[in-house]
Each structure stands twice: as structure tokens, then as C-alpha cells.
């Protein structure tokens, strides 16, 4: 592991001041000399592997602001401080009652030990686990722009079928983000140029020609909170995760679904897909296909077809298309059968 400077800022303003740099907006946070660390479950791993090479780490665990560690729930919103641990949020009974998709997306992620360390702010920013990205002797456009993509013709069973580009097919492996993108969450961001609120759906960027640029964040910006509005569909929401084993495995396919039902008819549906896409994936075509329909297996199937109409498989991941569709069908039917 490379030597690095380790510092512990005591407030958000101090942290962003320490990270501040004039060219921050042009530097992805993952490529900056100074990087933030919270739970460290992803960054410390990648530092050991030589994938992340920050010269300086700012530890956020010493930030004093109490709101960073709080889950606040009122009639309209659930607000998660960025330093809330995944485990705390997963176990929060009100989160589960008010919005099951959020709780399940956290509960089914990682392992108990990892959930106890990982922060929510860090969790949504976790980087892909693509094996070719993790191992520095392979070419990888995300890790080393312009070097090529070893996964494209390589071992790509885990890789994405939606939102891919010719430069990158790495999957976004998180779970929580699928629920957030389905539920129209917002993120609050602090930086030297001020505070801003961003739709969660705009946080992650598709790889395109620049897979090294993964988010909308500048190098000196910090997520401080994540907010989800509670609506008619929040309590009728579900996160279904399909994986190779029952725990501690990334999704092969997952679906976050929230339904606003009028009897058997869909007033509106919110759908996001995981394990199959390069970013947290909102399936608007599927939502549109369901609107105003009686939600039966045929309607669910039609929505699933719409969701994967543009899917592009590689050699080993074609199974994710039928699996992704069936995951969505099952999630829709199971959500339908929940009490509204």
C-alpha cells in the first residue's frame, strides 16, 4: 500500500476547505490527490489493490455535525445523514414500515460486518467491482482512460447489459441506489462553491466515452444527506435481489419497485433495476407500460420487455436479460400483493 497523509477534519466546512482546489470541477473525486473516506469498505480495499492512489485521506468520521449521523422521519420525508451506517438504516423499524424498498435494499447488501462500517454517503458512491477494474495489470478505461477494456471480450458474466458503451461495461453493484433512484430521492451536496441539491438520478453518469467520470460530484464536494419523499407508493415498495448465493453477493439482477395502485389498476409505477446496468437504472419505459393497466402477469411481462428492449449482452452475460425480466415480473407481482 502506498503511504498517504491521513487527516481528521472536525466539520463539513473544514473538510471541504481541506479538499478545495481550483480545478476541482474538472477532476473526478476518484482521481483526486485528496479523497474523503468514511466506512472505508470500498476505498481502503482499492487502495490496497493499487486501484485508488490518493496522497491524502480526509476521514469524515470525526465530523461534528449531528445531522450527519441521524435518520429523520416526518410525515413527508425520510432524511438520512450521509454518515449513517448501512446497518443502522437497514434495522430502522420506521424506515422499514414507511418504505420497505429502502430497508431491503440495505439489508440484502454486503455482509453484517460491512453494513456496520459502510456509510450511506459512501455506499452510493461505491465503485464497480468489475474484476478487470480491480486488478491493475489489466487494461481498463475506467481506471486508466484510453487503455482499453479487458472485460469486453473477457470474462463478463457479471457485467452490464444496460447503459453500456464501447469503452465500458462495468456494472454498478450497489443496492441502496436502486431504491433511491426509483423513489426520486435527492442528495444534498456541500462544496467550496456552495450547497446544492441534486436529483439522485443525476448523481451517477453513464460511462459513455469517459467511464472514469462516474458521478456529478467535483473533487471537493461532499454528500451530506440523502432525502426520500414519502408518497402514496412508499409503503407499497419492494426490493428484490437475485444472486448466486443467499448472502454477501452482488445482484445478478435486482428490481426496486414502488406502486401506486387504484384497486387492481396501476396509477403509477416506479421501477429501478440493479445488477444489469452501468448506473442505478430507472426503467421509465417499464413504468410507462404499466400506467393505467391492470397489473397481472401479462402486464408485468410487457413492462419487463420494455425495460430490456435496449439491452446489449456480451459473451457471458446474455442470461441477465431473461433473468432481469423475470426479476422485474416477480418484483411487480410481489409488490402488487403487498398491502398498500
Amino acid at each position: 500500500m502506498r503511504p498517504f497523509v491521513y487527516e481528521r477534519p472536525t466539520s463539513v466546512s473544514a473538510a471541504i476547505a481541506m479538499a478545495s482546489r481550483v480545478d476541482a470541477v474538472r477532476v473526478p473525486p476518484t482521481g483526486a490527490d485528496t479523497q474523503f473516506i468514511a466506512g472505508g469498505t470500498n476505498l481502503a480495499d482499492y487502495m490496497k489493490l493499487g486501484v485508488a492512489q490518493p496522497d491524502r485521506l480526509l476521514d469524515l468520521n470525526t465530523l461534528a455535525e449531528p445531522a450527519l449521523r441521524q435518520i429523520r422521519i416526518n410525515d413527508d420525508t425520510i432524511r438520512f445523514g450521509a454518515l449513517v451506517r448501512m446497518g443502522e438504516a437497514a434495522d430502522n423499524v420506521d424506515v422499514r414500515r414507511r418504505c420497505p424498498a429502502l430497508a431491503d435494499s440495505l439489508k440484502f447488501a454486503a455482509s453484517g460486518q460491512l453494513r456496520n462500517m459502510a456509510s450511506l454517503g459512501g455506499n452510493v458512491l461505491q465503485r464497480t467491482r468489475c474484476e478487470y477494474f480491480r486488478e491493475i495489470s489489466w487494461p481498463c478505461n475506467k481506471r486508466e482512460p484510453g487503455s482499453g477494456c479487458a472485460a469486453m471480450e473477457g470474462s463478463n458474466r457479471q457485467h452490464a447489459v444496460l447503459g453500456t458503451s464501447d469503452a465500458c461495461i462495468a456494472t454498478y453493484h450497489g443496492d441502496f441506489a436502486q431504491a433511491l433512484v426509483a423513489l426520486d430521492a435527492t442528495v444534498e451536496i456541500e462544496g467550496p462553491r456552495g450547497r446544492r441539491t441534486l436529483a439522485f438520478a443525476k448523481l451517477h453518469k453513464r460511462p459513455g466515452d469517459t467511464p472514469d467520470i462516474e458521478t456529478d460530484l467535483a473533487a471537493d464536494e461532499l454528500i451530506t444527506a440523502i432525502e426520500v419523499r414519502l408518497e402514496r407508493w412508499s409503503s407499497r415498495s419492494r426490493y428484490l435481489k437475485i444472486r448466486d448465493r443467499e448472502s454477501y453477493a452482488f445482484a445478478l439482477a435486482s428490481a426496486a419497485v414502488a406502486l401506486d395502485m387504484d384497486g387492481e389498476t396501476v396509477r403509477s409505477a416506479r421501477i429501478a433495476l440493479g445488477g444489469v446496468a452501468t448506473v442505478p437504472w430507472r426503467a421509465r419505459e417499464a413504468e410507462d407500460a404499466l400506467q393505467g393497466k391492470v397489473l397481472d402477469e401479462a402486464a408485468a411481462q410487457e413492462a419487463a420487455e420494455a425495460a430490456f428492449a435496449d439491452a446489449r449482452p456480451r459473451e457471458h452475460n446474455a442470461f441477465k436479460i431473461p433473468l432481469g425480466k423475470r426479476t422485474l415480473v416477480r418484483a411487480l407481482l410481489e409488490t402488487r400483493d403487498m398491502k398498500g
Binding site: R129, E131, S155, D244, R245, E246, S247
Partner: peptide, 14 residues
């Protein structure tokens, strides 16, 4: 390619 316990799967308790 899958040289770690993240991707080299063995059964877990669950």
C-alpha cells in the same frame, strides 16, 4: 479473473 472471496463464491451460512 475472480481471485478473491468477493467473486470466488463458496456457500455462506445463509
Amino acid at each position: 479473473v475472480n481471485r478473491d472471496l468477493q467473486d470466488y463464491l463458496v456457500p455462506v451460512n445463509a
